[in-house]
């Protein structure tokens, strides 16, 4: 079976500086893969490259078997970019933001069809924000705004979900809501690739973890106990027998 997402010998440079190199990574249909790594390891860069937002300097990315440059079937992909807020310069309601997740399925200059509206309402319901659908996103808490972004990706009914740090800066209650939402997505048979700093309540959902360290893949296999918790805790605990290869706290600090 063709993998939903496949990177072969991928390398990415930003402003001439190599960020990723020698990346071989794939997610099969229905698989739930967590990309882990400390700040600055390159895990978000990898995801942005997979979504076509950053060019590869070598190697190839395929989505559903089609090289990225020739891939146009974007309705099959749901992307949740790394954001601290879902708000922009003009206030928009939860419903309006989620509705933009249907664009890959809509034609120009045509109003929303009934199945569009059903999908939007269902996506908002799945993340538990139906009662706030007419509220402005800027009035929501950080965790609720993250759920709005997930609902936006959900509205397109994609087969491949790509979530960039959905748990960063999100309170524990929203993390639980998030894991319930993911459980539902997974139950529908979608492929999920998620970038995380700490897995927290998501840990039990993961089939496979891929650890990115210094721009390379350092581990690819079944989740290890404590993955995404202490193992990738980005600050060192002095005197607790930390292995010498652990990186001290990066500039960004733990989120």
């Amino acid at each position: 079976m063709t993998p939903s997402l496949e990177v072969t010998d991928g390398a990415v440079a930003i402003g001439g500086r190599p960020i990723l190199r020698g990346i071989d990574f794939s997610a099969r249909g229905g698989e739930v893969v967590a990309l882990l790594g400390s700040n600055g390891s390159g895990k978000s860069t990898l995801i942005r490259a997979c979504m076509g937002r950053l060019p590869l300097t070598r190697g190839e990315i395929r989505l559903f078997g089609v090289p990225l440059a020739r891939f146009h079937d974007w309705r099959r992909v749901g992307y949740v970019p790394q954001r601290t807020t879902a708000a922009s310069g003009v206030p928009a309601t939860v419903w309006e933001v989620v509705a933009s997740g249907r664009l890959a399925r809509r034609r120009w200059l045509t109003p929303l069809r009934r199945d569009d509206r059903t999908a939007i309402a269902h996506a908002i319901e799945t993340v538990g924000l139906l009662h706030r659908r007419n509220d402005e996103v800027s009035t929501l808490s950080g965790g609720q705004q993250q759920r709005v972004l997930i609902a936006r990706a959900l509205a397109g009914q994609p087969e491949l979900f790509v979530l960039d740090e959905p748990t960063a800066g999100v309170d524990l209650h929203s993390q639980h809501a998030l894991s319930d939402t993911l459980r539902e997505i997974i139950a529908r048979g979608a492929t999920v690739v998620l970038v995380a700093h700490e897995l927290g309540p998501l840990e039990s959902l993961i089939d496979r973890t891929v650890v990115v360290r210094d721009g390379r893949i350092a581990y690819d296999g079944p989740p290890q106990p404590g993955d995404g918790m202490a193992a990738f805790h980005s600050h060192a605990h002095p005197g607790e027998g930390e292995p010498p290869d652990r990186q001290p706290l990066g500039e960004g600090g733990p989120l």
């Binding site: 942005r48 979504m51 974007w74 309705r75 992307y79 922009s88 990706a153």
Partner: peptide, 9 residues
């Protein structure tokens, strides 16, 4: 959200 719009094609 430019990133999201781009991934919508």
């Amino acid at each position: 959200d430019e990133d999201f719009a781009a991934v919508q094609g």
